[in-house]
Computed example of a mutant assay.
Amino acid sequence: MDAFLISTGIVALAEMGDKTQLLALVLALRFRKPWPIVMGILVATLANHALAGAAGAWVTTVLGPDVLRWVLGASFIAMALWMLIPDKLDDEEAGKPPRLGVFGTTVVAFFLAEMGDKTQVATIMLAAQYTSTVMVVAGTTLGMMLANAPVVWLGERMTRLVPLRVVHLVSAAIFMGLGLWALLGQH
Protein backbone atom coordinates (compact mmCIF):
# COMPACT_ATOMS: atom_id res chain seq x y z
CA MET A 1 0.00 0.00 0.00
CA ASP A 2 2.98 2.31 0.57
CA ALA A 3 3.88 2.06 -3.12
CA PHE A 4 0.36 3.14 -4.11
CA LEU A 5 0.04 6.04 -1.65
CA ILE A 6 3.55 7.42 -2.15
CA SER A 7 3.24 7.12 -5.93
CA THR A 8 -0.11 8.92 -5.87
CA GLY A 9 1.19 11.77 -3.74
CA ILE A 10 4.47 12.25 -5.56
CA VAL A 11 2.92 12.33 -9.03
CA ALA A 12 -0.01 14.53 -7.99
CA LEU A 13 2.47 17.09 -6.67
CA ALA A 14 4.92 16.68 -9.56
CA GLU A 15 2.10 17.21 -12.06
CA MET A 16 1.15 20.63 -10.64
CA GLY A 17 2.19 23.20 -13.22
CA ASP A 18 3.61 20.49 -15.49
CA LYS A 19 3.26 20.72 -19.27
CA THR A 20 0.64 17.97 -19.32
CA GLN A 21 -1.43 19.87 -16.78
CA LEU A 22 -1.12 22.93 -19.00
CA LEU A 23 -2.15 20.72 -21.91
CA ALA A 24 -5.24 19.63 -19.94
CA LEU A 25 -6.11 23.29 -19.41
CA VAL A 26 -5.63 24.13 -23.10
CA LEU A 27 -7.78 21.18 -24.20
CA ALA A 28 -10.49 22.09 -21.69
CA LEU A 29 -10.59 25.71 -22.76
CA ARG A 30 -10.50 24.83 -26.45
CA PHE A 31 -12.98 21.95 -26.66
CA ARG A 32 -15.17 22.42 -23.57
CA LYS A 33 -15.96 18.67 -23.47
CA PRO A 34 -14.61 17.49 -20.11
CA TRP A 35 -15.56 13.79 -20.24
CA PRO A 36 -13.71 12.85 -23.45
CA ILE A 37 -10.70 14.86 -22.26
CA VAL A 38 -10.62 13.20 -18.82
CA MET A 39 -11.05 9.73 -20.35
CA GLY A 40 -8.29 10.50 -22.85
CA ILE A 41 -5.98 11.56 -20.02
CA LEU A 42 -6.76 8.31 -18.19
CA VAL A 43 -6.07 6.07 -21.21
CA ALA A 44 -2.87 7.92 -22.16
CA THR A 45 -1.59 7.90 -18.58
CA LEU A 46 -2.31 4.20 -18.07
CA ALA A 47 -0.44 3.32 -21.27
CA ASN A 48 2.48 5.65 -20.61
CA HIS A 49 2.90 4.78 -16.95
CA ALA A 50 2.55 1.05 -17.59
CA LEU A 51 5.52 1.32 -19.96
CA ALA A 52 7.42 3.42 -17.42
CA GLY A 53 6.60 0.95 -14.64
CA ALA A 54 7.87 -1.93 -16.77
CA ALA A 55 11.08 0.00 -17.44
CA GLY A 56 11.53 0.63 -13.73
CA ALA A 57 10.97 -3.02 -12.87
CA TRP A 58 13.44 -4.04 -15.59
CA VAL A 59 16.11 -1.72 -14.16
CA THR A 60 16.05 -3.70 -10.91
CA THR A 61 16.99 -6.87 -12.82
CA VAL A 62 20.01 -5.20 -14.45
CA LEU A 63 21.49 -3.21 -11.57
CA GLY A 64 22.65 -4.62 -8.27
CA PRO A 65 21.18 -3.26 -5.01
CA ASP A 66 24.12 -0.95 -4.22
CA VAL A 67 24.26 0.56 -7.71
CA LEU A 68 20.46 0.85 -7.78
CA ARG A 69 20.50 2.68 -4.43
CA TRP A 70 22.94 5.28 -5.81
CA VAL A 71 21.09 5.61 -9.12
CA LEU A 72 17.73 6.05 -7.35
CA GLY A 73 19.15 8.52 -4.82
CA ALA A 74 20.80 10.61 -7.51
CA SER A 75 17.67 10.40 -9.69
CA PHE A 76 15.39 11.62 -6.89
CA ILE A 77 17.76 14.50 -6.13
CA ALA A 78 17.90 15.40 -9.85
CA MET A 79 14.08 15.26 -9.88
CA ALA A 80 14.03 17.68 -6.92
CA LEU A 81 16.12 20.15 -8.91
CA TRP A 82 13.98 19.58 -12.04
CA MET A 83 10.85 20.42 -10.03
CA LEU A 84 12.22 23.93 -9.52
CA ILE A 85 12.07 24.58 -13.28
CA PRO A 86 8.46 25.27 -14.32
CA ASP A 87 7.18 23.71 -17.54
CA LYS A 88 5.63 25.67 -20.38
CA LEU A 89 3.44 24.32 -23.14
CA ASP A 90 4.66 24.96 -26.68
CA ASP A 91 2.28 27.10 -28.70
CA GLU A 92 2.57 24.64 -31.60
CA GLU A 93 1.03 21.84 -29.50
CA ALA A 94 -1.97 24.00 -28.57
CA GLY A 95 -2.75 25.07 -32.14
CA LYS A 96 -3.17 21.69 -33.82
CA PRO A 97 -6.70 20.81 -34.98
CA PRO A 98 -8.44 17.74 -33.52
CA ARG A 99 -8.19 15.27 -36.42
CA LEU A 100 -8.95 12.36 -34.08
CA GLY A 101 -11.77 14.01 -32.16
CA VAL A 102 -11.48 15.29 -28.59
CA PHE A 103 -10.82 11.86 -27.01
CA GLY A 104 -8.30 10.72 -29.64
CA THR A 105 -6.52 14.07 -29.67
CA THR A 106 -6.23 13.96 -25.88
CA VAL A 107 -4.89 10.39 -25.85
CA VAL A 108 -2.23 11.10 -28.47
CA ALA A 109 -1.26 14.52 -27.10
CA PHE A 110 -1.02 13.30 -23.50
CA PHE A 111 0.88 10.14 -24.36
CA LEU A 112 3.45 12.09 -26.37
CA ALA A 113 3.67 14.98 -23.88
CA GLU A 114 4.28 12.51 -21.06
CA MET A 115 7.31 10.95 -22.81
CA GLY A 116 10.39 11.90 -20.79
CA ASP A 117 8.27 14.06 -18.49
CA LYS A 118 8.85 14.41 -14.75
CA THR A 119 5.94 12.16 -13.89
CA GLN A 120 7.09 9.44 -16.29
CA VAL A 121 10.62 9.57 -14.86
CA ALA A 122 9.13 9.47 -11.35
CA THR A 123 7.10 6.38 -12.33
CA ILE A 124 10.25 4.64 -13.56
CA MET A 125 12.09 5.48 -10.32
CA LEU A 126 9.19 4.43 -8.10
CA ALA A 127 8.76 1.14 -9.98
CA ALA A 128 12.48 0.49 -9.47
CA GLN A 129 12.13 1.22 -5.76
CA TYR A 130 8.97 -0.79 -4.99
CA THR A 131 8.28 -4.44 -5.74
CA SER A 132 4.67 -3.89 -6.87
CA THR A 133 4.77 -2.27 -10.30
CA VAL A 134 0.97 -2.53 -10.50
CA MET A 135 0.54 -0.48 -7.32
CA VAL A 136 3.06 2.11 -8.55
CA VAL A 137 1.30 2.47 -11.92
CA ALA A 138 -2.11 2.62 -10.22
CA GLY A 139 -0.81 5.28 -7.83
CA THR A 140 0.91 7.39 -10.45
CA THR A 141 -2.17 7.21 -12.68
CA LEU A 142 -4.40 8.29 -9.79
CA GLY A 143 -1.97 11.12 -9.04
CA MET A 144 -2.20 12.29 -12.65
CA MET A 145 -5.98 12.17 -12.53
CA LEU A 146 -6.13 14.03 -9.21
CA ALA A 147 -3.99 16.81 -10.68
CA ASN A 148 -5.56 16.99 -14.15
CA ALA A 149 -9.27 16.20 -13.87
CA PRO A 150 -10.04 19.27 -11.71
CA VAL A 151 -8.18 21.43 -14.23
CA VAL A 152 -10.34 20.06 -17.03
CA TRP A 153 -13.57 20.77 -15.14
CA LEU A 154 -12.61 23.99 -13.43
CA GLY A 155 -10.36 25.37 -16.14
CA GLU A 156 -8.65 28.64 -15.52
CA ARG A 157 -10.23 29.15 -12.08
CA MET A 158 -8.16 26.22 -10.78
CA THR A 159 -4.87 27.83 -11.78
CA ARG A 160 -5.64 30.87 -9.65
CA LEU A 161 -6.36 28.81 -6.51
CA VAL A 162 -3.07 26.90 -6.33
CA PRO A 163 0.20 28.80 -5.94
CA LEU A 164 2.31 26.71 -8.31
CA ARG A 165 5.64 27.97 -6.98
CA VAL A 166 4.78 26.66 -3.49
CA VAL A 167 3.69 23.32 -4.94
CA HIS A 168 6.95 23.08 -6.88
CA LEU A 169 8.99 23.84 -3.75
CA VAL A 170 7.10 21.24 -1.69
CA SER A 171 7.53 18.67 -4.48
CA ALA A 172 11.24 19.45 -4.71
CA ALA A 173 11.60 18.99 -0.95
CA ILE A 174 9.82 15.62 -1.09
CA PHE A 175 12.00 14.40 -3.96
CA MET A 176 15.12 15.64 -2.15
CA GLY A 177 14.04 13.79 0.99
CA LEU A 178 13.45 10.60 -0.99
CA GLY A 179 16.84 10.97 -2.65
CA LEU A 180 18.64 11.47 0.64
CA TRP A 181 16.70 8.59 2.21
CA ALA A 182 17.71 6.31 -0.68
CA LEU A 183 21.36 7.35 -0.38
CA LEU A 184 21.67 7.45 3.40
CA GLY A 185 18.84 5.42 4.88
CA GLN A 186 19.12 2.01 3.19
CA HIS A 187 22.41 0.45 4.16
Score class of each variant (00 low, 15 high):
Arg165Thr: 11
Ala138Asn: 14
Glu156Gln: 14
Gly139Asn: 09
Gly116Asp: 05
Ala138Met: 14
Asp117Glu: 09
Arg160Gly: 01
Lys118Met: 04
Met145Lys: 06
Gly155Phe: 12
Leu154Gln: 09
Leu146Ser: 00
Leu84His: 08
Asp91Gly: 14
Glu92Ala: 14
Leu161Ser: 01
Thr140Arg: 08
Ala113Arg: 01
Ala128Asn: 04
Ala149Arg: 04
Asp117Lys: 02
Met125Asn: 04
Thr119Ile: 03
Glu92Pro: 14
Leu126Asp: 05
Glu156Phe: 11
Leu169Ala: 09
Leu126Glu: 05
Phe103Ile: 04
Ala128Val: 06
Leu89Thr: 15
Gly104Glu: 11
Thr105Arg: 13
Val162Lys: 02
Met144Thr: 10
Leu84Thr: 06
Phe175Asn: 02
Met83Arg: 03
Val166Pro: 01
Asn148Val: 02
Ala127Cys: 07
Lys96Gln: 13
Ser132Pro: 00
Gln120Ala: 07
Arg160Pro: 00
Gln129Lys: 13
Pro97Asn: 04
Thr141Arg: 05
Val137Gly: 04
Ser132Ala: 14
Met115Lys: 03
Val166Met: 06
Gly104Gln: 06
Met135Trp: 07
Glu93Gln: 05
Lys88Gly: 09
Asp87Thr: 07
Met144Ile: 07
Met158Gly: 00
Glu156Tyr: 12
Ser132Phe: 10
Ala147Val: 07
Asp91Ile: 13
Thr106Gln: 07
Ile124Leu: 15
Thr123Cys: 13
Lys118Leu: 07
Met125Phe: 14
Trp153Ser: 01
Met125Trp: 11
Glu93Leu: 13
Val137Gln: 08
Leu100Gln: 09
Leu164Thr: 04
Thr119Arg: 08
Pro98His: 04
Gly143Pro: 05
Lys118Asn: 11
Leu84Val: 08
Ile174Cys: 03
Arg157Phe: 09
Ala127Tyr: 13
Met115Trp: 15
Ala109Glu: 09
Gln129Ser: 10
Thr119Phe: 14
Arg99Gly: 10
Phe103Thr: 05
Pro98Gln: 03
Leu164Met: 10
Phe110Thr: 01
Ala147Met: 12
Trp153His: 03
Pro86Lys: 11
Thr159Asn: 08
Leu100Asp: 07
Arg165Gly: 02
Leu84Lys: 03
Gln129Gly: 08
Ala122Gly: 04
Gly116Ser: 03
Ala127Trp: 15
Val107Thr: 01
Val102Ile: 10
Thr123Tyr: 11
